[in-house]
Design a protein around this nucleic acid. Structure first.
Lengths: 114, 114
DNA sequence: CAGATCTATCGAAGGCTGTCAATATCGAAT
DNA sequence: ATTCGATATTGACAGCCTTCGATAGATCTG
């Protein structure tokens, strides 16, 4: 399964700020994989919509219309974000609710030297 | 010329922190383009090597061996980083020196809610 | 159980990306 | 002027990504 190297969970907590010292090859790959999860307009919108949702969570059905893509595509993006450690999934009934992982985005921000 | 939507200079200063409010479609595309420039292991290493270099700058010839790729490929990545607003290029003689744009990485970090 | 609904997976199509070898460009030095 | 050295550009190729329609799985309702 190729699929954007899905399975880099929490690689966000990989290393010192970028400007401190040269990244090793492995660290660079790990950080790049994390950034790839964020390097898509739809996924960025999904994250921001989930973050702004009441109770801090949203089901797939809430996300399809705002981003204007098919349901399979939305599920696909949510899976990538979840595997990258930015979202958690919890199923209640037939609905799947997605929620931000606290601090996950912030850790990436820290590495960029904010 | 497709080439990674080269020409999104300084789109890093695009918007409020991701978790504040839903990203508009245009903002999302701009931010994603900026993130795409960072979503590659080689480019991340190039940034960190330049940052750690004496005098804060490095020429292409200094970067080829550390990343282990061909000279055209290194030039290609440097161009993407420059067009994305993370590096500046200054030519002295036959050498091209690259330098970090102060604050560029930090602004991206801020958007991620660091 | 049957039907309806919500979500995930599969398979395919098209476009984009990273990489290289070859070549062009530009400046320096003989 | 010619040659040499450092970068950038071009052209090509393999692999990956986004997207969709079709389908399967799971859960509630009647």
């Amino acid at each position: 399964m190729t699929l954007l190297n899905v399975t880099d969970i929490s690689s966000a907590a990989c290393c010192a700020p970028l400007e401190r010292e040269p990244l090793g090859a492995d660290e660079a790959v790990a950080l790049a994989n994390t950034m790839k999860a964020l390097a898509d307009p739809t996924r960025l919108r999904l994250l921001s919509i989930v973050a702004a949702s009441a109770d801090g969570e949203a089901c797939v059905c809430d996300l399809i219309e705002p981003v204007g893509l098919s349901q399979p595509t939305v599920s696909h993006h949510l899976k990538i974000l979840t595997n990258a450690g930015f979202l958690t999934r919890s199923k209640r009934g037939t609905w799947a609710y997605y929620r931000l992982v606290p601090g996950a985005l912030g850790r990436v921000g820290d590495v960029l030297g904010a």
